[in-house]
């Protein structure tokens, strides 16, 4: 089980070199993040005069206390959890259903519709931003949760991804189940869906991530303080010159906003790399 990709048993010299290289590169990758965390634990005034003070004591958690003292911060966290969470769940449901439909079922205009959805992938956010804003003004959707969630549901990325993954599953599996007189939905639910778990986890994490860090739509739709997402909220607490006079505070905000996603990732990562494929195909 040591190495699925190579299919080899035990560790060869090549294996060890690859491991060393990935560890070395990981340290380079990690360095800036360690630096962000260190900066977040420093006094802002001290950093303004001397950036190198990050390498020595004193450290402080004052910046984090500052965040927690911001009157609306817990409301913003709640908003972000609701918006990103609901959007992620709905995206997984819609994309899985549609992915299965496009990959496995036949219906009139299927290919035309699939191509249309794939073309939708090419639509940049800016091409629809203004029109959506006007549409939502007309529908009075601004400053509501559905106003923040709905635009994300139209993104074709999930459908594209799930269609590809459903296609990669050997057809014999569902044809066999079909002969077993299982309903279409049952095949989808019981036989195929479990096989797409790695893709579901990937799609889930990235939907959550992009919604959590989304800036532009929440900025122009959730304009009331009570409807800020965490990203918009913490940006609003920065002064004009935050990068010079409040560097530590800025960094603590980054850690504070990024940590939940990292935790979520650690939770979901076991679904990405498991023995799921072997067990399923037998």
């Amino acid at each position: 089980m040591s190495s699925v990709s190579s299919g080899m048993v035990g560790r060869s010299a090549g294996d060890r070199i690859v491991l060393m290289l990935t560890i070395a590169m990981a340290i380079v990758m990690m360095a800036p993040i360690a630096w962000v965390v260190a900066l977040s634990l420093k006094d802002n005034k001290e950093l303004m005069t001397d950036m190198n003070s990050v390498f020595h004591v004193p450290y402080t958690i004052a910046n984090y206390i500052n965040i927690l003292a911001t009157s609306s911060v817990f409301r913003w966290i709640l908003n972000s959890v609701i918006v990103s969470g609901v959007l992620t769940i709905l995206t997984l449901v819609l994309s899985s259903l549609a992915g299965y439909g496009f990959a496995r079922l036949n219906f009139p205009f299927r290919n035309a519709l699939l191509i249309l959805v794939l073309l939708g992938l090419a639509v940049p956010e800016q091409a629809v931003l203004i029109a959506r804003h006007q549409l939502f003004s007309w529908l009075k959707f601004h400053n509501t949760y559905h106003g923040l969630i709905l635009p994300g549901l139209a993104a074709p990325f999930g459908v594209f991804l799930m269609t590809q993954y459903f296609r990669a599953i050997p057809k014999e599996l569902d044809e066999a189940a079909l002969l077993d007189n299982a309903s279409r939905f049952k095949i989808f639910w019981k036989v195929l869906l479990p096989l797409t778990l790695p893709a579901q986890a990937t799609l889930g994490i990235f939907t959550f991530l992009s919604s959590w860090n989304d800036y532009f739509w929440p900025l122009i739709s959730g304009t009331k303080k009570e409807m800020y997402t965490l990203t918009i909220g913490i940006a609003s607490t920065q002064t004009n010159f935050a990068q010079s006079e409040g560097l530590g505070f800025l960094m603590s905000q980054a850690v504070f906003a990024g940590a939940p996603i990292l935790i979520l990732y650690l939770f979901f990562q076991k679904y990405i790399v498991t023995a799921v494929s072997g067990a399923a195909v037998r």
Partner: peptide, 19 residues
């Protein structure tokens, strides 16, 4: 309501939405 400096993207959007 505190906004990120200078806040005009948000203000323009609010005026456009009539709010």
């Amino acid at each position: 309501t505190t906004v990120e400096w200078p806040g005009y993207d948000q203000l323009t959007a609010q005026f456009a939405a009539g709010d």
